[in-house]
Write a protein that binds this DNA or RNA. Sequence first.
DNA 1: GTGAAAGCGCTAACAT
DNA 2: ATGTTAGCGCTTTCAC
Lengths: 330, 330
Amino acid sequence: MRDITKMTGLSLATVSKYLNGGNVLPENRALIEQAIRELHYEVNEVARGLAKNKTKTIGVLIHHLDNIFASTIIARIEDILRQHDYGTIVCDCRGDLKLEEQEIRFLLNKRVDGIITLPTSGNAEYLQPAVERKVPVVLIDRTFGNGMFDTVLVDNREAVRGAVSVLIEKGHQRIGMICGGDQEYTARERLRGYFEALESANLKIEDRLIKRGELSVQHGYRGMKELLEREERPTAVFLSNYEITLGAIVALNESGVKFPEDISIVGFDNMMLSQVIRPKLWMVVQPMDEIAEQAAELMLKRLEFDTEGEPVSVHLKTELICGDSIKEIK
Amino acid sequence: MRDITKMTGLSLATVSKYLNGGNVLPENRALIEQAIRELHYEVNEVARGLAKNKTKTIGVLIHHLDNIFASTIIARIEDILRQHDYGTIVCDCRGDLKLEEQEIRFLLNKRVDGIITLPTSGNAEYLQPAVERKVPVVLIDRTFGNGMFDTVLVDNREAVRGAVSVLIEKGHQRIGMICGGDQEYTARERLRGYFEALESANLKIEDRLIKRGELSVQHGYRGMKELLEREERPTAVFLSNYEITLGAIVALNESGVKFPEDISIVGFDNMMLSQVIRPKLWMVVQPMDEIAEQAAELMLKRLEFDTEGEPVSVHLKTELICGDSIKEIK
DNA sequence: GTGAAAGCGCTAACAT
DNA sequence: ATGTTAGCGCTTTCAC
């Protein structure tokens, strides 16, 4: 930049003004533009960040980056933010609470302008440093119910209730559920949807049919195996996320149990899976793109306008895709 | 930081030294530590970055973040780098050459210390700015054959040759291939492996059996459909990446064509898929973790030691997973 | 519209 | 071991 002033005879202030879109005499503008070209000048965003106290980067903290749901959303968010000149620093805390806390500090030290997160933790404690620094936070997929942050959620409860109701309508009474742990908001909501469906059909809730655990292929696999071993097998099982669905299907394949003949299933999260697997899976799918868009938009709004306004909560609908993985019984 | 000096009566230099692990009198150390605690002080990495001309962040530029191969690798890289105190700015250029070029500048302007990339482009042009600034670059999965950058590759050609040879051994003569476009290094290599296998078995290469296109579910789907429509159907098809495999299987399911009875297939990239899909898929799998680890390590080496040494190229082996998706014929 | 000067928060000689 | 000082590359106030 100094070189530009030398080359043009203008001052730092003028050049800076030009760079930031201010008014400059046409002749000077031309001068500067030429200098920039000749010198291959590019702004040093670090210096600018220091001077402006804004880095034009926002931190994205998620529980698992190698998770189709998360990575799809992040990809879209990144895309949108970049179009608004924001970069994103992505941190994956691998489902580790300690790491999650550290990562927030890490991002804050890098002076990100905002944080978008798919939380691991069940409480907002770890976000305290961000609150103190008044760095805006947008939550995706999970919330803490304290109403302190902008949030993008999906109607998990409703989605599961609907899907399980379909099972019930088709005559299923003993319906298994493989889901996440009670400490997770999303898992709790999905489980509640399951309960609600059973209750409103006056079916009894059997704890042995519910397999709580990680949202992992492993857990899906083991959960399904355990359900299959029971003397009174469920006639249908709800699989409450993508990884679990995958694992459960592996278990079925291995055990030679066919769906929907021997057992009915409904999966979650990945439309593609429902098309690839034969017979076609019934599946609850989330509007990933919209989740991403809403989250990015909420963040951009905070950044450009009302830094202090009331937290906003966006609720999105899921969709139930019909397939052939449910058998009508009785 | 200024507050710390006031609180402790020490100078900026001393505090800075402490923060950077220099020698400080035990008493002063204690003083500083207490001040830090009371003030909730955290380094401003932006300011530090400006002063040191090192940002401790490295840019990761990939063609598609919502791609299981890419996101798995990125997740692991991010993990490793963070353990060495490096953050990562992830950019997804969505397979767009223009964007890819822009993103490099974007990263450079953010003054990343290094760039790791899974390139979209077939030539190194867009990396020129990085070279000029002497920012180290590590290539993953694809190379430009100019030997200018550290690179982590997989034996694509060998992998496909091996897999196709298995098909041939099992009696297949008309073997289809659905793969990426000729402008992609990886696609070219895989195709060459296919050719080599056919040639060494003295089978003729039929261009009509080769479906070049995007590495997308779409292309896999259409490619398979087209192959199925031919009057002389291939008896086997090699599917040369994960998305293509997925798409092809959808096509098979839709068309009611069963594997391995009606057609044999070998997939690529995702072990999980091979377990979930029934019958079990034969599949070439890449050592994702190792790819990530090698890439991260190459980058760290450049950063900490020989910034000027000769480019290193790491070659990794793939694995061929046996399944039930190949029928022995004749 | 332009320029001079102060300052963003930190590091790195250099001198003590 | 500690303090003084200059400076990293840019923005921004305030005169002009």
